[in-house]
Design a protein around this nucleic acid. Sequence first.
DNA 1: AGCACGCCGACT
DNA 2: GTCGGCGTGCTC
Length: 803
Amino acid sequence: MIAEVIVDVAAYPIDRPFDYKIPELFAGFVEPGMRVKVPFGPRKVVGYVIALKQESDVDISKLKPLDELIDFEPILSPELLELSEWLATDTLAYRIEALQVMLPAAMRAKYEKFIQVEDPDAITDTEFANMLRGRDRIPLKLADTKELLKQLKNYVDSGAVRVDTLVKQQTAVKKVRMIHIAESEELHLLLASVSKQAVKQRILLEWMIEHAGQSIEAGKLIAESGVSSTVLKTIIEKGAAQERKTEVYREPEAFELRDTAIPKQLTSHQQHAVDEVLDAFRSGSDTTFLLHGITGSGKTEVYLRTIDEVLSSGQEAIVLVPEISLTPQMTSRFKDRFGDQVAVMHSALSAGEKYDEWRKIHRKQVKVVVGARSAIFAPFEKLGIIILDEEHESTYKQEDSPRYHARDVAIWRAQFNHCPVILGSATPALESYARTSKEVYRLLELPTRAKDQALPNVTIVDMRAELKDGNRSMFSVPLAEAVRDRLDKGQQTVLFLNKRGFSSFVLCRDCGTTIQCPNCDISLTYHRASESLKCHYCGHEERVPHVCPECESEHIRFFGTGTQKAEEEITKLFPEARVLRMDVDTTRKKGSHARLLQKFSEGQADILLGTQMIAKGLDFPNITLVGVLAADTTLHLADFRAAEKTFQLLTQVSGRAGRHDLEGEVFVQTYTPEHYAIELAKAQVYEPFYHMEMTSRKQFGYPPFFYIVNIQFSHEDLMKVVGYADKAARFLAEGLSPESVIIGPTASAISRVNNRYRYQCLIKYKKEPKLTETLQALIRFYRTDWIKDGLLLSVDKSPVVIY
DNA sequence: AGCACGCCGACT
DNA sequence: GTCGGCGTGCTC
């Protein structure tokens, strides 16, 4: 038998299967979807078996045998193997990247080099001998001086030492030491034989007698018996207990939030949606539903009911949420409903925790996975439904290779598994909504709130007028009054600040200079905690200057992060208010996000102030006021989706207010109150916005009327990047049909990052049969030639942001 | 990619 | 003479 293997080498000529002989020893054990270790040229690498066959096109004498099996059962199903092929082609990525993206990071191979001493007598250099310290195998990285490396080379040449690469798996199965205590009789015997002076040992034995026959975790035993681990060790050696390592799953920190009760009765709209989806499910149809439900309309309940049915017919469900750590309420609802049948996958988990959750799915110990983007690759084999909540969110698109969109993968898997997909949103992506009118997706509407609450009343505050009246603070008079009112009533307020535009920079008030990154075309960001200036693009960091580097004026101002500044203003305006600030700074630590929310839900604060991350999923009964401090900040971005994003954000944020018995109120502060995205967000009507925005997209030739491909070029040399971008543009123009439009090359919005100049080229097309072919050919030029000249090129089909 | 091979300049 | 620079070519 012969195995077709994709090796762990991302390079153009390697991006294809290589054939290996299966040694007699492994005959019958090797299956597609397993990882293997194979010789590749002079080294060993990890590879993925993608197929088995009897014959190879390559001469049999040239075939090498597999070295080792890493897995004893496939870790990728036939479905996922097939998906990886489609994914690699569709996103123009390497096949190996497509395979690796499906597995938790902890399963990716690490390569470590070692110095292996073959002939210790030949080592004559004292420096080298010192480095070895008598060992015959040390990590290569210990040879860290030029001198040592030179000696190493000599020894390698003479054959005294060898450098070899070890393929390391970082798959850490967590094991705990379980102590199995002997029976009472045995312990009594031991106790009698232990010297009277061994006080601690006697204490431990007495403790053990009380717990005879039990199994207990070593750490726990030590804590409870009050003896040290050395005493435990001696006692184990004397035979009082047995030690065993047991595999365990890491238990991510659990958080509890007050949950909404299970509604007894669905609204008629909810019921209709559930019925339609379940009809599709039962008939094995791969229909994609767009569940358009206004905020508070109970989309989650629709998901829960459909999953319930899917599970009772023995099938499995994937639920994607934009970034799950952001919506603890969502996960707790799933856990409440489906208990330990649920695995949760989110970015706040450690690599080990993610690996454990993945294993639970792989071992079929769970039936539902709730997770962020990459959970779409959950290794289920009986998928019955796939749900993408907040389907319009840009986090569903992966920003590095393979640049896939979870929505596309979901639809692919649904077709493979003959199961439906639900895309849920209060503010669907324009592309998705447009597809319902073309009947590619099926539209399900939830036009009313589940508990019949009124939508919150939204007031637009014109900040220009406020400014004219001499109010220069971040708070308009009406918003400040409303906050005061809630404080008096003991109700809660959520204040939302769009960070962009308020970002923290350093400005000289005399010459107007902002301090720029030396490597990038961007202002440095002020970090108060470390009193430093940082570049978010290249990581450059410098001390905060005391005088302006341009004019040496001492009048330089540091603007703290937007939320810090807002917090200061709140404290000034409402000294008695208890404020919780939630932004990247206050949620960096693991679990802090959930803790903050917990605090707020328990009423330990009056005001929750935050960025993007509080826009979603918050559902607390006592929130009756939402304030958007600066609605325009997303509006003026150089992005064709700016209006759509603003509308989505305002709608989402407004939906946080008055979801329960108390009525909600929303204030939106803006300098452009007449913009349709703001006006229509006030009215909280999606359809009119959709039509307005579609008109504009049509006029300017943007999605969904045209598809877009963004090709990015970067190089240290400005002339070279321009040269290659031009060359590429001409090549595309030649290869693609005349109906397709090629824009550029133009300099990117941030024209230099990390000392590399950036250019880009956009392709707009409606129908382009030669697209993949032409892009493949372009990538081929790049990967075979241009890359050697220091160029970096990336192709992004359907980009979500164009920088 | 990463490694070996191989072919020419500047050092002990 | 040989050390070491990096161009070239291959990986089942």
